[in-house]
Design a protein around this nucleic acid. Structure first.
Ligand code: FES
Ligand code: FES
Lengths: 146, 146
DNA sequence: TTACCAAAAGACCTTTTTGTCTTTTAATAA
DNA sequence: TTATTAAAAGACAAAAAGGTCTTTTGGTAA
């Protein structure tokens, strides 16, 4: 589905939002540990998200990562665009230069609707909506062996 | 959706089957040209498919690639397993170690049905069924610019 | 049986992805 | 204003994906 960077970003952002709800601002060490992702890589990914304006951060004592309450919820499609680029879920299923329903590949008829449902999912869900699910239900961000 | 190897394999196999229907056995040069894939890489990929028993080949004059008429149709899921490994469309959407509906991630509820429809597609469709579509309709394996 | 043809095998290379680590910068608190 | 804290920046490296090329092997046909 997603590449590693997107997976870590997704889990990390949901964890950060979840902590924000509790009035906390987690740092890289805490985030990486809680989402079971490589520490330095997690730090780099969070940095990139801040630079691209999807996340806020504060240095120094009491610093960490948080979401700007002023900004609208972060749609997953925005996140994926930032980490994997726009072309992720727009291309042809068998790799033609572009997907053209007027000149479709043999997979188009069945694949195009699936691709659309993925795009719907990515538009509907946000980091905040996912955090809400974790917050309310018994739903998790990790599932370590045993 | 798929990685490059799978894309080239898919396009290549459909092209080969299409030619088989016309009584021909195309070689690597022809296949790579027709599906617009890198020649040497295409050759390597077809070799792997032969080694894994999904495709047949003949060396020497008049040689080339072809499907064994005795064998059942090649489900796309078989092909994808061979090129990308089994875990391609079984894993968790946000990268948890495994997808467990008893302990779901926040994306599970909406993602699992999509993943299943992808798996249905990959089970239903075969290289032969795709070749049939290209054969019957005005459907293509390439769509060069202009 | 020789010449030729085309796939098989495998070495090699490039790019991208994934990951690590050190140094610098900025914020806070004492 | 100094010590401490934590992110920012960026160099570096390992691994995987993507791609190229040469040599060998096994067929075919003349
Ligand atoms: S043309 Fe291939 S998916 Fe639309
Ligand atoms: S647990 Fe994540 S998709 Fe099922």
């Amino acid at each position: 589905m997603f590449n590693k960077e997107t997976e870590y970003a997704l889990r990390g952002l949901v964890y950060i939002k979840l902590q924000n709800l509790k009035g906390r601002r987690p740092g890289t060490a805490e985030v990486s540990k809680e989402i079971e992702a490589p520490p330095f890589f997690t730090a780099k990914i969070l940095q990139r998200l801040v630079r691209s304006g999807l996340l806020e951060s504060l240095k120094g004592k009491g610093g960490g990562f948080f979401f700007d309450p002023e900004k609208p919820e972060l749609q997953l499609v925005k996140l994926v665009s930032a980490t994997e680029g726009d072309r992720s879920f727009t291309g042809c299923g068998i790799g033609l230069k572009y997907c053209d329903k007027a000149n479709p590949c043999p997979l188009h008829e069945k694949y195009a609707p699936i691709r659309e449902s993925i795009n719907n999912l990515l538009s509907e869900e946000t980091v905040q909506s996912l955090a809400q699910k974790v917050h309310k239900k018994e739903i998790s961000l990790t599932n370590a062996l045993k």
